[in-house]
Amino acid sequence: MDLLAEQRGEILVVHAMQDRIDAACAVQFKDRMRELTQLPTPRVVLDMSRVNFLDSSGLGAVVAVMKALAPDRRLELSGLTNTVQKVFRLTRMDSVFTIHSETPDGLRQAG
């Protein structure tokens, strides 16, 4: 699971670099996110703009990451593609996460 983390002030942005978060990499995603979020930034944003597909195992892993950050920090999401958005909507998880339509200003990765 390829994740790229960059710290910008109080925000840690983690870019998911793979096009899928699925059952084949959900555990790895969770473990890697746990390592990366050791940095004590108040906000954590997961940039999912490259992720074309998320299954329920992948969704469960994203939820697990949010739970691991609680109660002091909350996982925010950005750049949900159509299929990923659909999975969040169908499971009503869109009501639980702060979802930015685009990675918030100043967070966009150059290149």
Binding site: S56, G60, M66, K67, P71, L90, T91, R92
Partner: peptide, 24 residues
């Protein structure tokens, strides 16, 4: 059936699959 979504610490991490299949 989806579990109710309550406090963050109690959010379900699975059990979504059949709901999604049945809905679509």
């Amino acid at each position: 059936h989806l579990s109710p979504l309550g406090a963050v610490k109690d959010l379900p991490e699975g059990g979504f699959g059949w709901h999604v299949i049945r809905t679509l």
